[in-house]
Structure formats: C-alpha cells, structure tokens
Amino acid sequence: MFDFSELWAYRELIWVMVMKDIKVRYKQTVMGVAWAVIQPLTMMVIFSLIFGRLAKIPSDGYPYPIFVFSGLLAWNFFSSSVGTAGGSLVGSQSLISKVYFPRIIVPLSSIGVAMVDFLIASTILLAMMVHYGQALSAKLLLLPCFLAGLIMVSVGLGSWLAAVTVTYRDFRYVIPYMLQVWMYLTPVIYPLSFLSESWRWVMHFNPMYAWIDGVRACFLGLPIDLFGVAVSTVVTLIIFVVGLCYFARAERRFADII
C-alpha cells in the first residue's frame, strides 16, 4: 500500500516544487503574476460571448459570466491538475533517474500548482459577484468539502495517468482530448436543466458532475444535489484508492523505464 509517513517526511518538497513551478511560470514576463488573473478572465469572456450570447445557453437565471466562471473554475482545477500531473513524471526524467524522493510528489506538486490557480480564480469570482450585485451564500462554507472531492479525483486520476504515461507515452496525446470531451459531457458551461429530464440521471455516473455542480452551488447558493454527491463520493474514493495503489506498484520501475 501507499507509504503516507514517508510522504509526510517529504511534505516540504511538495511546497518547494509548487513554488518552483509558479515562479518559473512567470519569470521573464512583463505582466508577471497578472497572467494568473488574465488567463481565466479571458476564458470566461470567450465562453460568455460564444455560449451565453451567441448560443444563448441558459444559466438558471444567473448572469451567464458568473454562472460559467463558477463552473470553469472548478473544471479548470481538475483539468489542469490531471493534464499536468499526467505528463509530470515524464517531464522530470532527470530527477527520477538521479535522486530518490517519493515519486508521488511530482504529480502532487502539479496539483498544488492548479490549486493556487484555483484560489486566484476564486478571488476573481468573488470580485465579479460583488460587481454583479450577487449576495454571497452561507453555502460557501461547504466549499472545502467539494474542493476535497475535486482534489481526491485529481490525485487518483492524475497519479494513475502519470504512472501509465511513463510506460505508454501515448497517453500524453490522449489526455488533452479526453479532458476536452469530458468537459462538454459535464455541466460546466451549461446547467443540468439544459438536458431533458429523462436524461439527467445519466449524469450521475460522471464523477465530476457532483463536484463541479457543488462548487457552483456553494458560490451561487444553489441547492445541492445530495444523491449526486453520494454517487460521486463513492466513485471518487474508488479512483483515489486505485490510482494511488497503481502508482505505488508502478513506482518501483519508473527509474528503469522512464
């Protein structure tokens, strides 16, 4: 099984690696950390124009920018976690073949970086809500629970993909498409009510549905789909345990085949 005590001993390294990635990202840029704000804002504007204005996708009565941003925020966390974690081991080849540390730190620090982006984007969302005159809901206090769900799916799936990519580099090309398709299959830029009543139940099999929906519900004060959360929790736990176990088993061979 997974050696959590060792991971705890190396906890500082995760932080150092996250800081490294963030620092490196904005080195030698004029705008610097401002990019962390500009990127999600631009994305929100584009989605608002295309889906909100042109395609007129409903947003449950909320201003579409806020609606789409609250969904994108959560989805982006998941997608950039899984996307970067997936390729993270292959990208740190030289580290892995030259020095020992718990390998899981590599995908975990990718997720840490995504977490920082999530926090920045959340602040932007709060500012936008103030701008649109949206009241903050007490449900915001539940946000950490949904975030925990998101993190667990990301860790499980991200570390599994990272380990598999070491052997089968094909996944480097598969992951981006998988994430893109998955996003459109999840109510991120459209509400669940957009689907016809007879099809909504299918969505419960998508483990991302409840977490994305939950994060949005916390920000906008929408009702929480408890059945969805229950199903997603089970699926997430399975992904988390299976992902970590696979990683722990595959870890022993990384240095030989990377």
Partner: peptide, 26 residues
C-alpha cells in the same frame, strides 16, 4: 545520495532559489 551535481537545478531560477530547491530535492 549524490549521483550528479546539480540535479533539479532550474535555469530560470536565481542562485538563491536553486539552493533551496536543490537542497530540498537532496
């Protein structure tokens, strides 16, 4: 263990940042 000098050094980071990074990796 020390199998290579400068494992994990990142060219974009400053000397100081690399000391902390490399040290943590080691």
């Amino acid at each position: 263990s020390l199998l290579e000098v400068g494992t994990g050094f990142h060219p974009e980071l400053t000397g100081r940042e690399n000391i902390f990074l490399n040290g943590a990796i080691l």
